[in-house]
Amino acid sequence: MNIFRFAGDMTHLISILVLLLKIYATKSCSGISRKTQELYALVFLARYVDIFTEFISVYNTIMKIVFIASTLAIVWCMRGHRVVRRSYDKELDTFRHYFLIAASLVLALLVHEKFTFQEILWAFSIYLEAVAILPQLVLLQRSGNVDNLTGQYVFFLGAYRGLYILNWIYRYFTEPHFSRWIACVSGLVQTALYADFFYYYFLSWKNNAKLKLPA
């Protein structure tokens, strides 16, 4: 465990907690893409199937449970909670995320470490995580201005991926046979998706203006 990975896990956790806070405090989920949350729930369920078979560490197991539980809680809240679901931008959150699921599944069947059920699911979860933010970014583009909690949510998610890339670089130089090219390539793609958001986020922060994304 290196500092980059630990910091990455913490910012990932913070991003989910910020989202839970926003929904719980404002009893509103406007500006949040439910499809992105459903994709993340799928990512964690597909990736953590080994939670019962492979014990790596207490930290690892606890974090997996927290990620699955919090993401499912967000999805449940956005679907089931009477008050919250009324504020869901149904007509704006129209990204056809089933294509993302299908594409990730096909890619996982083609490119994986080993052709076993668990490996295919793991590769699927890695590819899906890379594109899961797309419905959220499209929703932000459409809704134009971004309320600061949602902006912070995407910011922390981007920071988590950026820190993980530093973690992979660190591990590449410190561990002789570290090979995680599937996650590295996919992680780079995902971080690139955030790049333009970071650019506008930084501009809005610098000009102390509301975050406006170009339509």
């Binding site: 990975r5 790596i56 997996k64 990620f67 561990e175 090979s179």
Partner: peptide, 10 residues
């Protein structure tokens, strides 16, 4: 092995 393949990551 898990660590080498990065499967020890979240």
């Amino acid at each position: 092995l898990l660590a080498l393949l990065g499967k020890d990551e979240l």
